[in-house]
């Protein structure tokens, strides 16, 4: 099982590296949305605005990046995996892979943000954990929604419609945690909010492990 998951993750990475356009597309997506935000806001002076913008761009980039998880490969190849691997290995490997992708996207997002609009981060430890846990949360939630959306005909619009209401609790908690990381001296209760984020990331992962086998069978 571990071996299976490892090989599936490796397969996804190789695939990503061989067809660069998908990865490049997402990187360019982040670059251009941040640039649009930069041009329309000018200089951001409010940490609150910075925070909201950062996470909204992160959300859209995440939805975009994850939505292709189950559609980039042909139906024939999906059937091949179906015969080859257990459904659990597939959802777990996709979730882990997407979580790694999300961490990368968050760091890139932060880099471009600090380059163009400066950053207000005071508490790097808290912000770092928020990004990592947020990546896991986004990945476990959105991977499952991508699996649901991939079973329909209009994958891309449904992905946004299905995921936004469900991703909101996580997004708001992440925003609150990173808000604390932006303000000086408000570090009380840090661990409590990180625990809430952890709970919100683990819960969808458990649900998708339980529910994915029902999606996979056809």
């Amino acid at each position: 099982m571990y071996k299976e998951i490892f090989h599936l993750i490796r397969k996804d990475m190789l695939l990503e590296l061989r067809q660069r356009y998908a990865l490049n597309g997402i990187l360019l997506y982040i670059l251009s949305t941040v640039f649009v935000a930069y041009l329309s806001f000018g200089k951001i002076v409010e940490p609150a605005t910075w925070n909201a913008l950062f996470w909204i761009i992160m959300l859209f980039a995440a939805v975009n990046a994850v939505s292709k998880s189950f559609v980039q490969e042909s139906a024939g190849r999906q059937l091949y995996y179906f015969n080859l691997a257990a459904p659990l290995s597939i959802i777990i490997s996709k979730t882990i892979y997407n979580a790694m992708l999300m961490v990368m996207l968050s760091i890139l997002n932060l880099l471009i943000f600090s380059l163009l609009m400066d950053h207000f981060i005071q508490d790097w430890w808290l912000f770092g954990w928020t990004i990592i846990l947020g990546a896991i949360g986004f990945s476990s939630l959105l991977t499952m929604i991508a699996a649901i959306a991939s079973r329909t005909n209009n994958n891309f619009s449904l992905m946004a419609v299905l995921s936004f209401p469900i991703v909101l609790p996580l997004l708001l908690t992440l925003m609150k945690a990173s808000r604390q990381a932006l303000e000086v001296g408000s570090s009380t209760g840090n661990n409590a909010i990180l625990l809430v984020i952890l709970l919100l990331s683990i819960l969808p992962a458990i649900l998708s492990i339980l529910l994915f086998p029902y999606l996979w069978q056809d």
Binding site: M144, L162, L207, L211
Partner: peptide, 9 residues
Amino acid sequence: VYNIFAFVM
């Protein structure tokens, strides 16, 4: 599947 996922969340 979506109903269960959405309700719990």
